[in-house]
Design a protein around this nucleic acid. Structure first.
Length: 277
DNA sequence: CTTACATCCTGATTGC
DNA sequence: TGCAATCAGGATGTAA
């Protein structure tokens, strides 16, 4: 499930392999993603050069010559792979390859998404400023905007579980189910705790560990839990370093207590009953 | 305003 | 072994 570290890893790899290349052709094989790919997307992308590759929250942003921006979201099962040639292991097209960007060096960026929860949308410069996908996003967790004063303020009076607060893209942008659980483990706070009941010291710990966890995950090029692959088709290595996510019944790496799985806001949430309070 | 929940989808896993 | 039921979950839209 691609979250900020996976998308940021993808961005960094693509920045080396695809940046400054011209998109010579766009092929839409399956437009039925979560929202249909616009019929004019190919015309608005083809022939333009990739000027820079950015990221906002879990969105990848390809800035194109002429002012258009291609916004990409991987949903839950999406990947964007850079393929230079067809091989036996990676044939030219595979199942669930929905859209491909052909670059001027004959390589291709292929969007594959089995569950089709992803997004591919193009904006002009004005449209990007008012893009509904980006308009309501909260601060980036690796920028200064996500600090203890801010988190304390948004938690004040809230009855929602702190884990739901961390996953609310309007409060802080880019954290999903895996990293919310990992951050709360490191902060020693149970995912079920009501946000408004947290002490300032606990808020401080959440803020302190958020960039530590996310940067460590980026350094491992993300977490591959089931299917995530980076643009070279490689899995992320952070799964080996997960402390709680997906480890129900396994011993806590700190104290040995079995990790528990509780449902918070319709999502599986993992925690150590001894290390987290 | 906040919170709850159904919806989209298919591969992997579980149950019988 | 085989098939059906269940689960997983990011963002969105609607309802309470």
């Amino acid at each position: 499930m691609p979250e900020l570290p996976e998308v940021e890893s993808l961005r960094r790899i693509l920045a080396r392999s695809a940046d400054r290349r011209t998109i010579t052709e766009v092929r839409v094989v399956e437009p039925r993603l979560r929202r249909p790919v616009a019929h004019d997307l190919a015309d608005r992308v083809a022939g333009r050069r990739i000027e820079s590759i950015g990221r906002r929250a879990k969105y990848l942003m390809l800035a194109l010559s002429g002012g258009n921006t291609l916004l990409v979201h991987l949903g839950m099962s999406g990947s964007l792979t850079h393929r230079r040639v067809a091989t036996d292991d990676a044939p030219f097209m595979t199942r669930h390859d929905h859209l491909e960007l052909i670059l001027d060096d004959q390589s291709r960026l292929v969007f594959n998404d089995p569950r089709r929860f992803g997004l591919m949308k193009v904006f002009d410069a004005d449209g990007l400023k008012t893009a509904p996908e980006l308009a309501g996003l909260g601060p980036e967790p690796l920028d200064g905007g996500f600090n203890a004063d801010y988190l304390a303020q948004v938690c004040r009076g809230r009855k929602a579980a702190i884990k739901n607060v961390l996953m609310d893209q309007g409060i802080v942008a880019g954290i999903g189910n895996i990293y919310a659980s990992e951050i709360l483990f490191r902060a020693g706070v149970r995912p079920t705790r009501r946000a408004g009941r947290l002490k300032r010291a606990e808020i401080d710990l959440i803020i302190r560990f958020t960039p530590i966890i996310l940067n460590a995950a980026i350094a491992s090029r993300g977490t591959t839990f089931r299917s995530y692959r980076d643009s070279r088709g490689q899995p992320g290595r952070f799964k080996e370093r997960l402390m709680v996510y997906g480890r129900e019944g396994e011993p806590c790496r700190t104290c040995g207590e079995p990790i528990r799985n509780v449902v918070v806001g319709q999502r599986a949430s993992f925690y150590c009953p001894r290390c987290q309070h």
